[in-house]
Computed example of a mutant assay.
Amino acid sequence: MESQVTNFPVSAPLGLWGMGLAFFQWMALVSLEGISTDRIFIGIKLMKKYLLVFFIILLSGCADPLPEDRLDYVGEWRSNEMGLLILADGSVSYKRLKGGATTSLSGPLKRFEGDDFVVGVLFMTTTFDVTEPPHEIGGAWKMTVDGVRLTRVSE
Rank of each mutant, 00 (worst) to 15 (best):
S104V: 01
A22G: 01
V118C: 06
D146N: 15
F54C: 04
A88L: 05
G100R: 01
L87Q: 14
F54V: 09
R78Q: 13
F123W: 11
I44Y: 06
D69T: 09
K49P: 00
L52A: 12
N7E: 15
L87M: 08
G147H: 04
G75T: 08
P9W: 10
P108A: 14
F41C: 01
T144F: 02
F24K: 06
T144I: 13
K110W: 00
K110T: 15
S60A: 14
S11N: 11
G75N: 11
V119G: 08
G147E: 08
V145P: 10
F23M: 06
I44W: 07
M1Y: 05
G107N: 12
P65S: 10
A88R: 15
R96C: 00
D64P: 00
P65N: 08
L21I: 04
H135V: 10
I86H: 04
A22N: 09
A63W: 03
L71G: 03
E33C: 02
V74Y: 02
D64F: 08
P133G: 09
T6Q: 10
F54M: 04
G90Q: 13
S93K: 00
I137G: 00
N7P: 14
L46I: 07
M143F: 12
E81P: 00
A12V: 10
G100S: 05
F112Q: 11
A22I: 08
V92F: 03
T102W: 14
V121E: 03
R39C: 02
V130W: 10
L46F: 02
F117C: 09
D38W: 12
V153M: 11
Q4C: 02
A28Q: 15
D146H: 06
I42D: 07
G83T: 10
